[in-house]
Design a protein around this nucleic acid. Structure first.
Lengths: 179, 179
DNA sequence: CATGCCATGTAAGCTGTTACATGATTCG
DNA sequence: CGAATCATGTAACAGCTTACATGGCATG
């Protein structure tokens, strides 16, 4: 039940149309909650139905026309409640770890190339995050609470990618012990 | 498309009934791929249909009777192919990071308790993993390839939980800067 | 007016979750 | 035999993915 809250957050930061939201879910918001345009349009419909958001009056109801949404008070209350609600972390579900376990049973022939590929992808993501950090959060600058929270979230992304690059490097080293 | 492969891996390690699989998905396998008994029974049916596994002949087809499954050659081939198939890492989708971002917009009142709760949960999980490591992988003992791969997977779990405990600790510290 | 792009949507299928149903076995 | 437990399912629904459909607008 997180997608509606991701959308509410995005719309509170800046009222947008469906396509603009989609673009933002490919960048900042998408770094910790991804979504496709189909998901977004469907969810916008539900949120409007529920009275949590509304289309700005300027927009005509015809297809192919841009439609901007903004959050209503009920939507803000819903989001505020969700932020502090007790919700346990989901158990891990990672295909790559599973594949290593499977390799223990059927053999790891050819798996190394896939590890190398993943390592490159995670390194690239890590570089992107650190560039954002250098640009948006220079030392001795964070002041508002929103800044501190955004920086924390970015740090989460950075440390997660750091974990993956380190773990994959270790894994590849282990492969070369007995190649 | 990972659940069928998780089941194939589990059945290759040891032929089992649906309920036995469910129990194993609450322990070792479940540490990186969780599944409920409903998912497992449904998937067992599909795998049998596809000719990847079969029920051992001893079992009668009546309801409430134990039914053991084993992997057929086609199932092993399917799993072998999957292990080396190129499959990109999924974009991150983490509700807690999202909640922090939302807190930047609607305020972080009451969020601290939730962070404390999550920290405790991750600490417990980390303790469980390190206990397993101490028991199953004592120093200077890993020899077979299967051992090395299993240890790598466990290290993944340990380092992931280490990341979360560290990140949550940092987050709580940041909250106390301006409480 | 044809092409490409902007923008919003529909439909089908798969995965995962939640709640409930049914039969077999064991033990007091 | 009544209750608890083992074991296998069914049903309904929510969320996500993939492919496709439709209309508006700008530009050569």
């Amino acid at each position: 039940m997180s997608l509606p809250h991701a959308i509410l957050t995005a719309l509170l930061e800046k009222p947008s149309s469906g396509l603009e939201l989609t673009r933002r879910f490919d960048r900042s918001i998408g770094y910790f909650w991804s979504a496709t345009h189909q998901q977004i349009y469907r969810e916008l419909g539900k949120l409007e139905q529920a009275g949590h958001i509304r289309a700005l009056p300027a927009a005509q109801p015809t297809r192919g026309q841009k439609k901007e949404y903004e959050v209503l008070p009920a939507g803000r209350e819903e989001l505020t409640a969700w932020v502090t609600k007790a919700e346990d972390p989901k158990p891990v579900r990672d295909p790559l770890l599973l594949r290593l376990r499977a390799a223990g049973v059927v053999g790891s022939e050819g798996l190394e190339a896939e590890l190398v590929r993943h390592l490159a992808l995670h390194r690239r993501q890590l570089a992107e995050y650190t560039a954002i950090e250098a640009r948006d959060f220079p030392p001795e600058r964070t002041t508002t609470e929103q800044d501190r929270l955004r920086h924390l979230v970015l740090r989460g992304g950075i440390e997660l990618e750091t974990f993956w690059t380190k773990w994959l490097t270790d894994a590849l080293a282990a492969f070369h012990v007995n190649p």
